[in-house]
Amino acid sequence: MGRVGRAEALLEVLMSSVNLNDVPVELGWTVAKAYFEGSLSTRKALRLLARACRLCEPEKTARVLRGERV
């Protein structure tokens, strides 16, 4: 899976999570800003997106990062 595909899969994990209160607000807005700018698949933004996903959905995130379907 390339960076664009990985960003899309992680974004689905994030947007579908019911545990978003576990993501610090500042990190949430940083991810949002990257989404608005269309830069979520850059290396730096992808790292932040993965960090946000790990905080709210650790197992699903690990599966996406291993290239599995969630």
Partner: peptide, 8 residues
Amino acid sequence: DPIWKLAI
């Protein structure tokens, strides 16, 4: 959900 998620 947090407001940042609603914005996205």
